[in-house]
Design a protein around this nucleic acid. Structure first.
Length: 595
RNA sequence: GGGGGUGUAGCUCAGUCGGUUAGAGCGCUGGCCUGUCACGCCAGAGGCCGCGGGUUCGAGUCCCGUCACUCCCGCCA
């Protein structure tokens, strides 16, 4: 007989009744009735109820075991009395009568129980991650993650993509996020950087003629964490393709994501064809470049209803500034003074002067704004937005650029408060036509708005003839339920266009040469037109597991301060290690005093 | 770097207006219990009230500082 098991804890059925079996696992739960004692034995595969009474030669041993001990149980499968079936267990029709029990590993008193689904502090969960991972929800999330990644690989391979590994120790890149640095022993004073993404490598792979690349790629960025942004490291489904247009990239990636979400979305409806929304349209309708399309609210400009009206605040704003506009946020079902006032005080809490509104009842608009602009203009607004009694509409005024973020937040808030956000949906869209450049207000200069490797729409001619701020890029995002899942672009594969683009962003040729010399050289030896995208694997898994925090889908996550509480990272290193790396510490004042 | 929230038993939390010996549930230890599956019943152990300072006759409670965790802003091409 195998030293540990003949079956797993999720395996036995009534067909095995009468057989002698051996199971190993964790003691999930003990129910001791004195003369009758139950152990729920758990492993990765399931739970099997084991039972002992004084007739069992192992009874004395069984009485000693405690939660989370690892034990081996020898016994006989028997069917349970019909009234004691447990429908919640796959093995619920049988139980194992214990003839022998060996303790393989005892457990100390637990800092957090594995049994049950109570909430525990993050610090405890992270420090004892191996216990948290035993718990059903997290265990299942991690299993699901593995299956999702396997499915991604299969779907990519099926479309003719090859997976390649790119370096982890590489060069610091000049733009983007802060790098993690690794000191070089052989080259005093020099450092490797961990890749923020394999961006340049994947483009070089296209230059090298491999045509279709993908990788479940680790990415490292030394930036502060958020609930949907792991500190330090995360994974991307990194994709690059040669001889493609934007449409080609879309037609490859869209079925992968749709298929993945249909496979793992537990029946939630998935957008059959992802709509393509230009960046500018998304900003005007939704106030964000990552709209949650489950929220049906679409904002509209209603400046004309206020121009020269009796609502002097808005009328004056419009008069003083030709760029000023008034946007309306329709709120179907929000037509009560209580709701409108609540939104108004929320807006004030957001640092806004307030949130103008009209609510409709008894066939007319009510509230101070309606009074000031009069019934005709009120009706004009109502008709434009298709509102009726019981609805409301909120207004924001000023330069769109300065209020658009707030307008987007208000749209989101209204949708949430009124329960307008549909559940059980994965609403995808493409956001396309991102601007190539943007105005950097701090430095008073034109800057790249995404990465400098994107191809401008219109090519070199556009760069030479158009207002830089009007030029769009072949740059696109995928958004699902308001979460930015990925970002990609058709790349700029022509050195002359890259030189021109850098010139517009105010970078000297020497900067381009110094920072992107390798890339630039590669483009001079025959580079295919190419493009790609990089969906965030962790965020995909998060959506498919219905979680709000990445730590629920990452096996060994760090805390928000980028510490691994279980392994104790980061940690101090020995003086010898530092010497070998030619490093002398220059700690901040407070630290020195503390130590 | 900045703002909000939290911090009381191993864990989850309660603790009134500043007032006697800081409580409950789960877990733990011991006892009883032969059909439970969140088993039940009885008893017990377990506290630097995050830490430091202050106000006060008296501080878990009020004030100041600080630390930790978390959420957000900045940041994240």
């Amino acid at each position: 007989m195998h030293p540990y098991r003949t079956h797993t804890c999720g395996e036995l059925r009534e067909a095995r009744v009468g057989e002698t079996v051996r199971l190993s696992g964790w003691v999930h739960r003990v129910r001791d009735h004195g003369g009758l004692l139950f152990i729920d034995l758990r492993d990765h595969y399931g739970i099997t109820q084991c039972v002992a009474d004084p007739d069992s030669p192992a009874f004395a041993d069984v009485e000693k075991v405690r939660a989370e001990w690892v034990v081996r149980i020898d016994g006989r499968v028997r069917s349970r009395p019909a009234e004691t079936y447990n429908e919640n267990l796959s093995t619920g029709a049988i139980e194992v009568f214990i003839d022998g029990l060996e303790v393989l590993s005892a457990a100390a008193e637990l800092p957090m129980p594995v049994f049950g689904d109570a909430q525990y502090p993050e610090e405890t969960r992270l420090r004892y991650r191996f216990l948290d991972l035993r718990r059903e929800k997290l265990h299942q999330n991690i299993v699901k993650r593995s299956k999702i990644i396997a499915s991604i690989r299969q779907r990519m391979v099926d479309q003719g993509f090859l997976e390649f590994q790119t370096p982890i120790l590489t060069a610091s890149s000049p733009e983007g996020a802060r790098d993690f640095l690794v000191p070089s022993r052989l080259h005093p004073g020099q450092f490797y950087a961990l890749p923020q993404a394999p961006q340049q490598f994947k483009q070089l792979t296209m230059v090298a003629g491999f045509d279709r690349y993908f990788q479940i790629a680790p990415c490292f960025r030394d930036e502060d964490a958020r609930a949907d942004r792991s500190p330090g490291e995360f994974y991307q489904l990194d994709i690059e393709m040669s001889f493609v247009t934007q449409d080609d990239v879309f037609s490859v990636v869209e079925p992968v994501l749709r298929g993945l979400f249909e496979e793992f979305g537990e029946g939630k409806h998935v957008t059959p064809e992802f709509p393509r929304i230009p960046y500018a349209t998304a900003m005007r309708k939704y106030g964000t470049d990552k709209p949650d399309l489950r929220n049906p609210i679409e904002m509209e400009e209603v400046s004309e209803a206020f121009r020269g009206s009796g609502f002097k605040v808005f009328a004056n704003i419009l008069e003083k500034d030709a760029d000023a506009e008034v946007w309306a946020i329709p709120a179907k079902g929000g037509g009560s003074r209580a709701f409108c006032d609540r939104m108004n005080s929320w807006a004030q809490g957001e640092g806004q002067p307030g949130l103008g509104y009209i609510f409709f009842r008894d066939g007319e608009g009510a509230g101070p704004v309606a009074k000031n602009i009069g019934p005709e203009r009120t009706e004009q607004v109502r008709t434009q937005l298709g509102l009726a009694d019981g609805d409301a509409v909120f207004f924001v005024a000023g330069k769109p650029k300065s209020f658009v973020n707030f307008a987007g937040a208000a749209r989101r808030r209204v949708g949430e408060e009124l329960g307008l956000i549909a559940k059980d949906l994965f609403e995808f869209c493409w956001i396309v036509d991102f601007p190539m450049f943007e105005w950097n207000e701090d430095e008073k200069k034109v800057d790249f708005s995404h990465n400098p490797f994107s191809m401008p729409q219109g090519g070199l001619e556009a760069l030479q003839t158009m207002d830089p701020l009007e030029i769009k890029a072949f740059q696109y995002d995928i958004v699902c339920n308001g979460i930015e899942l990925s970002s990609g672009a058709i790349r700029n594969h022509l050195p002359e266009i890259m030189r021109k683009a850098f010139e517009i962003a105010g970078y000297d040729q020497s900067v381009l040469e110094e920072k992107f010399g390798g890339m630039l050289r590669a483009l001079q030896y025959g580079a295919p037109p190419h493009g790609g995208i990089a969906p965030g694997v962790d965020r995909i898994v998060m959506l498919l597991c219905g979680e709000e925090n990445l730590r629920e889908v990452v096996m060994y996550p760090m805390n928000q301060q980028a510490q691994d509480l279980m392994m104790g990272a980061p940690s101090e290193v020995s003086a010898k290690q530092l010497r070998e790396l030619h490093i002398r510490l220059a700690l901040p004042q407070t630290r020195q005093q503390a130590s």
